[in-house]
């Protein structure tokens, strides 16, 4: 029975893939209209909330101090995350830095998946807006390892349908239209610089790692926890694809 369902599903996927060339893909004019919506992104409210939350910990100045950089250099520093931080002896995302900062400041750290954490992360990353992503995956052995683990996680086929991230985001299939949506090149699309983003289908703000989880769930892969080594590695790997592209937070996605 299961087998039949699986076959039916793959036929469905193939048939919509094959179809998509013209009729059901959106026109450039339509896309431009959606792009204009960035001007009025509901996630602007998320940024405002995150700003308020961070202000309880000293705002950007407090964050810069915690990270040991000057306030002027903070945006550039943020544009290099995830990065290896000696104090933690691991490669971390900005949300984990915020958790540690809360802990060290005597606050109970917010969970990585909490709405307030998403708000803070969105605000903090927006501090680096217009700064090109400058992640350095060769900065040290830890970053090299994180990148390698991310690449492996990206390429490994898992789950009931034997899919990997690569199944839909390899150069071979990029640009094919799957159910009206062109499969994006994560580098060209600047995934690293446009998440956290407001997701119109979910009416809420999501982060890059959370988006990875959604993808895994839909493709029937076991979901990897936020902040885990594999997840941070994946973020390193995908962010590196958009290296040099300007950060533009909050993003607005379908």
């Amino acid at each position: 029975m299961n087998k039949i369902i699986k076959i039916a599903l793959s036929v469905a996927v193939l048939s919509s893939l094959s179809f998509c060339d013209d009729q059901f893909s959106m026109s450039d004019k339509d896309r431009a209209m959606y792009a204009e919506m960035l001007d009025n992104n509901p996630a602007d409210m998320t940024v405002a909330s995150g700003e308020e939350l961070l202000s309880y910990m000293g705002g950007p100045a407090g964050l810069a101090k915690y990270l040991g950089v000057s306030e002027e250099k903070l945006p550039e520093y943020i544009a290099g995350f995830p990065r290896y931080i000696k104090k933690f002896d691991m490669v971390v995302g900005l949300d984990q830095v915020l958790q540690a900062m809360m802990h060290d400041g005597g606050h109970k750290p917010l969970e990585l998946k909490s709405g307030n954490m998403f708000e803070m992360l969105t605000y903090v990353k927006s501090l680096a807006n217009d700064v090109p992503i400058n992640i350095d995956v060769n900065a040290n052995q830890q970053m090299k390892d994180a990148y390698a683990l991310g690449e492996k996680t990206f390429n490994t086929k898992r789950g009931g349908r034997g899919l990997s991230c690569l199944s839909c985001h390899s150069p071979d299939v990029i640009g094919s239209v799957l159910r009206t949506q062109p499969l994006p090149d994560l580098g060209v699309n600047n995934s690293g610089g446009t998440w956290p983003a407001y997701r119109m289908t979910k009416s809420s703000v999501s982060t890059l790692q959370k988006r990875f989880q959604g993808c895994m769930k839909n493709a029937l892969l076991a979901v990897i926890p936020l902040g885990s080594k594999e997840m941070v590695g994946l973020e390193v790997f995908v962010t590196d694809k958009a290296k040099g592209k300007p950060i533009a937070i909050p993003g607005l996605k379908r």
Partner: peptide, 14 residues
Amino acid sequence: LKVPEIAENGAVVP
């Protein structure tokens, strides 16, 4: 009147 010819998501149509 400006609307998309194809809406990529019925929940949010500009």
